[in-house]
């Protein structure tokens, strides 16, 4: 599903963000990506959703060569990928319901379809009763769940979460991971989660890809540490 071969990314200012990365992720996997600040995690995400073009190498998602996509083909391609960030990025003037519906409206879904799908994903993330609340009336964890609902509303094959628990306390973080696992299973969505948080990685062991200074230094599962 995701194939990354000999990929390097050098930004215009000369920063080498990624150096000769090789990576293969199968459909349905749940993968952690860890590494210190500046190690290239966000750059990897930007290459996957077509925001940046690799300087060298192949980035292939669902058999699409993302690096050579024409700019007018990028929007359709992006519908395959949902993205969530640390800072939620919800529209403050819209309700929870409207925030999620917005993602469907702008890709021209029919009104009936929007209504049923928004209900569905709000139920999935456990916010059915908050549909008419505004983001400011919600806790951080709840806001992140709205962001996740919005990201999966259009049924993307891949969900990428860039430090989704960065602003949350351990209990809320845990709820978010639980939710992502649920989405991974129920919606069969491939999940890539960038995280700094080693407690999570150890408590919920999964395939973990470690980046250091643009290189992959480890690609393994932390096993046998479940009771940390």
């Amino acid at each position: 599903m995701i194939k990354i071969e000999n990929v390097s990314k050098v930004y215009k200012n000369g920063t080498h963000a990624l150096n000769n990365i090789n990576l293969f992720i199968k459909s349905g996997e749940f993968v952690y990506i860890t590494g210190s600040t500046g190690s290239g995690k966000s750059t990897l995400i930007k290459l996957l959703n077509g925001e940046e073009i690799p300087t060298k190498g192949l980035v292939e998602v669902n058999k699409v060569n993302v690096g050579i996509l024409k700019h007018n083909k990028v929007p359709l391609y992006r519908r395959n990928i949902g993205v969530v960030f640390q800072d939620y990025r919800l529209l403050k003037s819209k309700t929870v319901y409207e925030n999620v519906a917005y993602a469907l409206e702008v890709v021209d879904k029919k009104p009936e379809e929007i209504i049923s799908r928004v209900r569905e994903v709000l139920k999935l993330v456990g916010l059915n009763d908050k549909a008419n609340s505004f983001p400011d009336q919600l806790s951080g964890g709840q806001q992140q769940r709205v962001a996740i609902a919005r990201a999966i509303a259009n049924k993307p094959k891949i969900l990428i979460a860039d430090e989704p628990t960065g602003n949350l306390d351990p209990k809320m973080s845990d709820e978010i991971i639980t939710l992502l696992e649920k989405i991974n299973i129920e919606e069969k969505t491939t999940i890539l989660m960038v995280t700094h948080d080693f407690i999570i990685v150890k408590k919920r062991p999964k395939r973990t890809i470690s980046l250091e200074q643009g290189h992959i230094t480890r690609d393994m599962i932390f096993k046998g540490v479940k009771n940390v």
Partner: peptide, 17 residues
């Protein structure tokens, strides 16, 4: 900017944006 960012992230067509 926020709305534009979201539209582009969820794959709204350029013409739509």
């Amino acid at each position: 900017a926020d709305e534009i960012w979201i539209m582009r992230n969820v794959g709204a067509r350029n013409g739509y944006v």
